[in-house]
Amino acid sequence: MGSIIIILLSFSAGLLGGMGMGGGTILIPALTIFMGVEQHVAQAANLLAFLPMALISLKIHSGNGLIKSRGSLWIIVPAVVFSVGGAFLASVTPSALLRRMFGAFLIALAIKQAYDSYAALRARMQKRRT
């Protein structure tokens, strides 16, 4: 029963993830809040579950001509190195603290996303007026 609910929650997260907007930021809180999964375990599950999803959605996106690798190696190489450091940091952080830090991270991302959307909308309105 539990695994069916996890599949359903992950499917919803994957919908967003496949569009390139943070499936993990939905899956991790869904697992901890609704399923009582421990924070580190939820984070590990998201990292692993993301991999097959990324392969399939990359295939679809490149078919649609949406993948542009221009300049991306400059981001990828330091990101890979620092992600191992971040993972180590997580492994030494107590579960309850990591959960709260994750909550704060989510709120910051939501505010940033809302602000960006608002700025884009305003720019479009102004363009229409002139």
């Binding site: 539990g2 695994s3 069916i4 996890i6 599949i7 359903l8 929650l9 992950s10 499917f11 919803s12 997260a13 994957g14 919908l15 967003l16 993830g17 496949g18 569009m19 499936g23 899956l27 697992l31 999964v37 580190h40 375990v41 939820a42 984070q43 590990a44 599950a45 998201n46 692993l48 579950a49 993301f50 991999l51 097959p52 999803m53 990324a54 399939i56 959605s57 679809i60 996106h61 492994s91």
Partner: peptide
């Protein structure tokens, strides 16, 4: 931290959802 009983259903659901989302 990788526990199969969480990872496997999460991967199945996320991959299916991801394909639909990408389309």
């Amino acid at each position: 931290f990788a526990l199969p009983y969480v990872v496997i259903p999460a991967a199945v659901g996320m991959t299916a959802g991801g394909a639909v989302g990408a389309l």
